[in-house]
Design a protein around this nucleic acid. Structure first.
Lengths: 230, 230
DNA sequence: TCAATAGTGTCTGTAAGACAATATACC
DNA sequence: GGTATATTGTCTTACAGACACTATTGA
């Protein structure tokens, strides 16, 4: 069984060449109220030592599909095994995007609560993102488009929060992801008219500020995948 | 240069096996007011003789990316070279979806006016679609979800119409794609508030019915790609 | 003139934004 | 009690759906 270090090479078939098949993941979290992306330094060539998205080869002998590849990579490279939302983003391909040759990258994006994102030095705020190798700039741009688009009509941003949160914190996350200010009353109305969160009975966030605020949590049905709320 | 009949085979590398890289296309058109999908009979194995989506291998020595693969396939297999809208749908992968082995299908969906769709026996109305080989049922379902979702907030359905059309015809196409009835006044208001179509000056559709109707066409800026209209 | 469709105007309900008023803790 | 935030209520505006009214042609 090939392991992660058993890197596949291009087939040397004289009549036909296969594309490389890889998976890249754009992992988002919130750090200090700002949207961050996981871009650890690469350990292997090409571009060893420079920051890039996490990714890896599709292993046809162990992966049930590309999503399984993505989960395996997150588990192996970032020790992330559960508690995150992940969805396919798009597939990028061509002869020039990877110096190793004609390649396919099935890109995913994922969303985790800040607490689960362990080594914060692997994350970079999207406002301070440097140019990335391969076509990772384009992949990140596509992921940002997607997450911002979905923020306005889905429960996606809620997956950036810890298990319990206040309405104000939820609004702040939506505002950060969407990059826009929202009206408190309208936001509350809209969120409550949907039924994807519920009050944690009797639980209040006290001590921190002045009037304590009600704590909320995602409903069980919402926990595994986000829903449209429009 | 390998041609279409120069089929790539799986690499026989003892230590590592590559996934097959293919592109499949869900081509939509309107026939007699109903949404149809292109599913010609396959000429090659596997599943020769049965209806399936058009598709083919990625040719790394001639394709600039997977979109180029899709365009090459449409040109070669359906003689469709221009006048259609195409967009990436999603990528499907796994060991079982293709009997030839672990495979990747980068799926696209495309939309053409009925006139461009030449041999109508290659098309099947979505209401009468039979079970398809591979995981093409799943791909078609995903494409239908996408096109229906986009219909309500984009100009996509307009690409199913010929060069000029009446407001009533435009509404009928939206209704067929969305699978819902729309109010005439509201529809007209919404479409006119956007600016993606324009009147063809002085041109009316006469003779056909009673009061003649104004003819419209897509604006030049809209012709190449559809826009969000919300 | 009639039939049948094209095109326009009006009313109403819903929901979001603006913004003010009230509630509740800690200091 | 004062302060800062939480939560609720009200007013206004925008817009879509419902529906009726007018316009225009060929028969």
């Amino acid at each position: 069984m090939p392991k992660a270090n058993n890197v596949p090479r291009r087939a040397a078939s004289p009549e036909y060449t296969y594309p490389l098949a890889t998976v890249d993941i754009v992992l988002f979290t919130i750090v200090d109220g700002e949207l961050n992306v996981l871009v650890p330094r690469r350990e292997q060539q090409p571009f060893a030592g420079t920051r890039a998205l996490v990714g890896g080869y599709v292993h046809v002998d162990e992966d049930a599909d590309a999503l399984a590849t993505a989960r395996r990579i997150l588990s192996a490279k970032v020790s992330l095994t559960e508690g995150y939302f992940i969805e396919q983003l798009a597939t990028f391909s061509g002869p020039a995007r990877d110096p190793r040759g004609w390649s396919i990258s099935i890109a995913y994006y994922a969303v985790v609560p800040m607490a689960h994102a362990q080594p914060s030095e692997w994350f970079v705020p999207i406002s301070r993102l440097m140019p990335l190798p391969f076509d990772h700039d384009r992949i990140v741009a596509t992921a940002l488009e997607r997450i911002r688009g979905k923020a306005s009509y889905s429960t996606l941003p809620a997956f950036l929060l810890p298990a319990t949160f206040t309405m104000t914190e939820l609004q702040a996350v939506y505002e950060h992801v969407m990059g826009a200010q929202l009206d408190r009353a309208s936001f509350r109305r809209k969120i409550e008219s949907q039924e994807f969160i519920e009050e944690v009975p009797g639980e209040l966030r006290r001590g921190t500020a002045f009037r304590p605020s009600q704590l909320y949590r995602l409903r069980a049905a919402t926990l595994q995948q986000f829903d449209r709320i429009i």
